[in-house]
Amino acid sequence: MMKFIRTLLKPFAAFFEAHAKTHYRLERHSMGLTVGIIIAAGVGGFIEIAPLFTIDDTVEAAPDMRLYTPLEQAGRDIYIREGCYACHSQMIRTLRDEVERYGPYSLAVESQYDHPMLWGSKRTGPDLARLGEKYSDDWHVRHLVNPRDLVPESVMPQYAFLLEAGLDTDSLPDRLAALRAVGVPYTDEMIANADSDALGQAMPDTERSDGVFERYGDETAVRNFDDRPGRLTEMDALVAYLQILGQLTDLPEQTQILPEE
């Protein structure tokens, strides 16, 4: 047995001897080391990342996939700003208990337009990938104002200031344009009307809101999300975003076996 192992070891040992010898020479040249390190550390990243762009079935095809409206995108930016991703994942893994608790496992296509993705790495709070339309707008507003009013056990911070903070809509055309630059297919019209559309989505039955339906589809949720008439707040934007989570495409529900009880 020992002998067998030793034979097995031989090629390794030989390789290593050669390597050690080369190394002994290499370590006298700083640029040699530099090149060596870059090559050794370059291989893995290249082999794991580059094919994600070339292998077709990496991202599924979802013809019904829709874009974030400017208001939802603004909400997403606030979600990032407040660091919600530090506690909430948006990635239901392919594990039975996750699918049974949160819903169909997440598909790559669902975050196709997410620059950056918000899959998260810690679940101090529950996963939010399928949160959209699970609660009422009013619930979200009250929960964000003080989570412990609704869930006494919660350790989530209060975000009451979002109700007072007016949403900055001026920067929205620029934001959408930057997103188009990295590959989100916003049209010129969408970019030009981004600030008006953000207002319109929180003002049902106005001319502005008609524009939202026109550009983003009839299914778009047009509501006064924070229930404060006449003012577009950061709360409107964040709740609009939370209500769209998991609602961008029906592909997961259509293609997966779902738990039955």
Partner: peptide, 17 residues
Amino acid sequence: QREEVQESIAVANAIRD
């Protein structure tokens, strides 16, 4: 992984049925 979890859910459904 996707087929695996689908299978486990199908099995669970069958048992709970």
